[in-house]
Amino acid sequence: MPVEIDIAKVAKLARLALNDEQLASYGEQLGAILEHAERVQAMATDDVEPTSHPLAMTNSFRADVVIPSLDRDEVLSQAPDSVEGQFAVPRILE
């Protein structure tokens, strides 16, 4: 059974402006993929610890030392819009 999902809510969480047609199409595709992915639930794994990372190491740190920052003009040259040394964006809704 394809998995039913609230695709509009997921798209909103992922900040993707999709139209209704796109939403329907992605919803269907995801449902089918999740039907396969659901197989992971078939394994009796309650007693198994999850693995987040392949490395068994811990504690990788950096010394608290300042290294040079980037040149602002170079940084802003890549920005879609900038004003007086700052990145400019349309108004932000609070």
Binding site: R62, V65, V66, I67, P68, S69, L70, R72, V75, L76, E84, G85, Q86, F87
Partner: peptide
């Protein structure tokens, strides 16, 4: 490694 500097000009302590 960017400095913690609250008096720097905008976007000058970035990497």
């Amino acid at each position: 490694g960017c400095a913690v500097d609250f008096n720097a000009e905008a976007n000058t302590v970035v990497c």
